[in-house]
Simulated scan of single mutants.
Amino acid sequence: MPLLDVPALVDHHCHSVVAADLPDDDLAGLLTESDRPPAPGTTPFDSALGLAVRRWCPPALGLPAHPSAAEYLARRRELGATEATGRLLSAAGLDTCLIDTGLTAAAGRSLLPLTEFAAAARARVREVIRLETVAEAVSATAGGWPEAVRDALAGAAAGAVAVKSVIAYRHGLAVPPERPARPAVVAAAGAWRRTGGGRLTDPVLLHHLLWTAVDVCAGLGLPIQLHTGFGDPDLTLHLADPALLTPFVRAAEPSGVPLVLLHCYPYHRQAAYLAQAFPTVYADLGLTASYAGPRVAAVLGEMLELAPFGKLLFSTDAYGLPELYVVGAAQFRYGLGELLGQWRAAGACSAADAERLARMVAADNARRLYAL
């Protein structure tokens, strides 16, 4: 089936890319969420994502689809990183990218600054602020930590379109519906500072930070993005089930702040339920669409069993490699096109219905949610 014909996409959650030349092993290492070596005798190209890269990316570099990994990498080296990056990013057909700036390097190399990324991608770029990065930079005394975090977050978010939390990695998504008491926050901040600060993992501080984000975002009219579902080995998967957020979602609902569940797999059906049940909850499939390979239509269909069409967003969650933008966009177009073709053939929707749904998920929902 041909790719879905939708206007330029709004990628509502993504990261910048490395523009420097990478050794083949380093480049292949960005095709997996794992930081461990692959099985003996294999590379990360031996995966559904690897197949998708070899399917969708070669034409942008002047190759036919499905060259060997060695042929693809040789062509990439021949063009050079700058040329390959520009070709790949522009081939993704993105109108706007909302970039999480909490990550600044990949494979030991710096990521492109937002202005250079925008020029290479020929897309508009807006910033998403990472909560934990802001909080970890605060140097206030323990007694002043709650107010200092609030002020730092308000300042950082003033020019952003959203904030994002990786609390799923740091402690899990079982966030209590009650705000932590100030004495507990001050005590936890003191203990954290005595250990030298650094990576924020204390549950009291993480929960206080998330509730502070609710207050700040209510004032600025911004959504909060939350990582859910699979990720790298630093994450404990069952603690990243978005259903664990349910008490927090209920408690935060009066604020009106949208909560955007990212990636979600293998809990994408739970995320779809939350998006249906609660007016403030939105969801995407994110990098799952790339990793699912030819099964992407089935996974999208499972999400759309319950998720209202106005609550599902497109994103690539691309990071490090421009290939992941091409693959994420192509997999979305292919998967949603395949799914809607099935629905139309079964008489479940009209051509007009399918076109409207596609436009909503591809761009319109994000434009509305983020006031783009």
Rank of each mutant, 00 (worst) to 15 (best):
A140V: 10
F278I: 00
F332S: 00
A271V: 04
Y273R: 14
A298G: 11
P247H: 03
V53M: 05
C217Y: 06
R295K: 07
E338M: 12
V186M: 02
G93P: 11
A366V: 09
A289H: 08
D5Q: 15
I224F: 10
P279D: 12
R170N: 08
A70K: 09
F278L: 09
T316A: 03
L209E: 02
A362L: 10
L114F: 08
A156N: 00
P64G: 07
R359G: 14
F248L: 05
W343T: 06
L340Y: 00
A297D: 13
L357Y: 15
G293P: 03
L306M: 14
L300C: 04
L4P: 12
C14F: 03
Y319Q: 08
G196D: 11
H208E: 12
E132A: 01
Y265T: 02
P279C: 11
A191Q: 13
W211H: 14
P203Y: 05
R36H: 13
V163D: 06
D95Y: 08
H66N: 15
R124S: 11
E33L: 13
A140D: 03
L131F: 09
P183N: 12
G341S: 08
L22P: 08
A292E: 03
G159Q: 10
L220E: 01
L339R: 10
L220V: 06
A352C: 04
A184K: 13
T195M: 13
S110R: 15
P177K: 09
H208I: 06
C264P: 03
Y265D: 09
A84C: 14
G219K: 03
L235W: 03
S110I: 00
H268L: 07
P254E: 09
V149S: 07
A283L: 13
T82F: 05
A92E: 03
D241V: 06
L312D: 04
A318E: 07
A358T: 08
M360N: 08
S34Y: 04
R55K: 14
W343Y: 13
P322G: 11
G29F: 15
C57P: 02
L111A: 09
L73S: 05
D100Y: 07
T212L: 02
V326A: 09
S110H: 13
L114E: 02
H12G: 01
L306W: 14
A184M: 07
V216F: 03
V175R: 07
A213T: 04
A92F: 01
E116W: 00
T104C: 09
E305V: 14
P37T: 02
W145V: 00
L89G: 09
L321N: 10
T236V: 13
A352F: 09
E71F: 02
P258Q: 02
L49Y: 04
T32C: 14
L312I: 10
V161T: 10
G256S: 06
A84M: 04
E132M: 05
R126L: 11
L205H: 01
R76S: 04
G159V: 13
P223S: 06
P38Q: 05
H268K: 12
D100S: 14
A352V: 04
T42Q: 11
V149M: 12
